[in-house]
Amino acid sequence: PRNVQAHQGVYHADPNHILAIGSSTGGVEALLTILSGFPKDCPATVITQHMPASFTRSFAARLDRTSNVNVTEAVDGAVLQAGHVYLAPGGAAHLTVVGGRCRLVASDPVNGHRPSVDVLFESVARLGRPMTGVILTGMGRDGARGLKAMRDAGARTFGQDEASCVVYGMPKAAFEAGAVERQMPLTRLAPAILESCAAKGAKTTVA
């Protein structure tokens, strides 16, 4: 049974809004923190966390168990829906979004990673839909270019601040590239993300 304390009040996600999150070192705990603050009606969410193939399915199950939202390992062709979170499977492919569906693309590593955050973010930037991008703790630069593409395409973008990161590599690179609109502590990210993804005109209360 789920016994997570979610945000109080009524929340309505914009059904067209896509939330994309990228993370690496330290991302497991960061994602647990953010998703534990999401209500059942969260925005359709796609996540690339750098993680070996043997761990992503069990991590998706853990996120599902410890949050109010439905979290699964992404499968090719899955239709994005509010209240659902799709985690990139590790190893053989990159997670992308095409036409409102998850697509797994088997190609070379990007920035030394497969799946790559840049590949996910760049695919979301091309959708022409309301979108929000978030870059969390991690080593290296993966995600900076893609988050900049999202911001240039009109997305709201957030970065985890240095003090709350395990490794302030990916968020720093994205911030320095001009990709991050707002940088904030991990504990403040969930409310800010939900506000960004809320349906226009909805009365939304976030803690």
Score class of each variant (00 low, 15 high):
60 A>D: 06
52 P>Y: 08
86 Y>T: 05
39 P>D: 06
90 G>C: 07
30 A>W: 10
100 G>K: 10
51 M>T: 03
42 C>G: 04
33 T>W: 01
98 V>I: 13
92 A>R: 00
47 I>D: 03
76 D>F: 12
61 A>Y: 00
73 E>M: 07
69 V>F: 04
39 P>I: 05
55 F>R: 03
99 G>T: 05
89 P>N: 08
88 A>Y: 09
61 A>C: 00
46 V>T: 08
38 F>Y: 11
45 T>Q: 04
106 A>L: 00
56 T>Y: 10
62 R>A: 05
59 F>W: 05
30 A>N: 08
80 L>I: 08
91 G>E: 00
59 F>D: 00
98 V>W: 00
36 S>N: 07
82 A>T: 14
24 S>D: 10
78 A>F: 14
34 I>H: 04
24 S>E: 09
47 I>W: 08
54 S>T: 09
72 T>K: 15
86 Y>P: 11
70 N>W: 07
41 D>G: 06
30 A>M: 10
100 G>R: 09
69 V>M: 06
50 H>P: 12
91 G>R: 00
98 V>K: 12
106 A>N: 03
48 T>F: 10
56 T>F: 11
34 I>P: 11
49 Q>L: 15
85 V>H: 02
53 A>W: 01
37 G>F: 11
38 F>L: 05
30 A>R: 08
83 G>R: 09
37 G>T: 10
77 G>L: 12
100 G>N: 07
36 S>E: 14
86 Y>I: 09
44 A>W: 05
34 I>M: 15
53 A>T: 00
83 G>I: 06
65 R>P: 06
31 L>F: 06
61 A>D: 13
103 R>S: 13
29 E>P: 02
96 T>M: 14
64 D>E: 07
54 S>H: 11
36 S>R: 14
37 G>P: 13
102 C>L: 13
74 A>N: 12
67 S>I: 04
49 Q>H: 13
74 A>M: 12
35 L>F: 15
48 T>C: 14
36 S>C: 07
58 S>T: 14
96 T>C: 13
56 T>W: 09
69 V>E: 02
103 R>M: 14
44 A>L: 04
99 G>N: 15
52 P>S: 06
110 V>F: 04
86 Y>V: 09
65 R>F: 12
57 R>E: 13
59 F>N: 01
50 H>E: 08
35 L>A: 03
27 G>E: 12
102 C>K: 07
46 V>N: 02
108 D>A: 14
79 V>C: 02
87 L>K: 07
79 V>R: 13
